[in-house]
C-alpha cells in the first residue's frame, strides 16, 4: 500500500516535470561549437579563393579513403593577387563514407578543411552524398559564418603575416612552411605547430 503510494508519487512528479525531449524534425537541439559534422572546405574571403591548395595530405590520412583531390596552378598567383602557387581544382568527398573522425582537420597545414555543423544529409540517391568542390565550399562558408571562423594555423596566412608570426614565435624547424605544397604533403614526419619544439 505504502509502496504503491510512493510509486504514484513518482508518477505525479514525472507528470509535473518539464519535458526533456525535443520533437526532432520540428525542434532542433542546439549544436555545440565543437560539434563535428561533415568536413567542408573553408573560403579565404581576403583573396576570394579557397584555402585549400590540393596538397592531398587529408586524402592520404583519411582512414576510410573517402576523399579525392586534384591541384592546379593558381592563376591568381601569376596575377600577384594570391600567395598560393597551387590551388585546388577538384575535390570530392563521399560523405556517405566519411566517419567524422576529424583526422583531415588535424593534418591540414592550411586550415583549409574544417568539420562543419552540417549533419543532416539524407539523400534519395546513392551517390547524392558524393559532394564536389562548390558544395564543400558552400558548406564551409556557411560554417565559417556560423561560428565566426578564424584561421588558427600560421601556415595559412600570407607571407607577411607569416613573417610576423614567425618573429613572434621562436623560429623552429616546425615553423618553416615549405613553399611548395607538394613537398609539404610528402613530409609526414613534421612536428605539430603547437609543440614548437624538436622531435622528441
Amino acid at each position: 500500500m505504502l509502496n504503491g503510494l510512493k510509486g504514484l508519487g513518482v508518477t505525479l512528479r514525472g507528470a509535473l516535470r518539464s519535458k526533456v525531449t525535443a520533437e526532432y524534425p520540428k525542434e532542433h537541439l542546439p549544436i555545440d561549437n565543437r560539434f563535428m559534422g561533415f568536413p567542408a572546405l573553408t573560403w579565404d574571403a581576403a583573396r576570394d579563393e579557397p584555402y585549400c591548395t590540393g596538397c592531398i595530405v587529408c586524402v592520404r590520412y583519411c582512414p576510410t579513403q573517402c576523399m579525392s583531390a586534384q591541384m592546379q596552378d593558381n592563376p591568381k598567383f601569376a596575377e600577384g593577387v594570391s600567395h598560393r602557387k597551387k590551388i585546388i581544382e577538384t575535390f570530392e568527398i563521399n560523405l556517405g563514407r566519411c566517419i567524422l573522425c576529424g583526422i583531415c582537420v588535424d593534418v591540414c597545414n592550411f586550415d583549409a578543411i574544417e568539420m562543419s555543423h552540417e549533419h543532416e544529409r539524407s539523400e534519395r540517391l546513392r551517390n547524392a552524398n558524393r559532394v564536389d568542390l562548390p558544395t564543400l565550399l558552400d558548406m564551409g562558408r556557411q560554417y565559417q559564418a556560423e561560428v565566426g571562423w578564424k584561421q588558427s594555423k600560421p601556415n595559412a596566412a600570407s607571407p607577411n603575416e607569416r613573417a610576423a608570426a614567425k618573429a613572434a614565435v621562436e623560429a623552429t624547424k616546425a615553423e618553416e612552411t615549405p613553399e611548395n605544397p607538394e613537398t609539404q604533403a610528402a613530409d609526414d614526419t613534421d612536428i605539430p605547430e603547437k609543440s614548437g619544439g624538436d622531435a622528441a
Binding site: 593534418v107 609526414d188 614526419t189 613534421d190 612536428i191 605539430p192 603547437k194 609543440s195 619544439g197 624538436d198 622531435a199 622528441a200
Partner: peptide, 8 residues
C-alpha cells in the same frame, strides 16, 4: 595537453 612527439 599534448606531449612533444612527432605527428606520425
Amino acid at each position: 595537453t599534448m606531449a612533444q612527439i612527432r605527428r606520425i
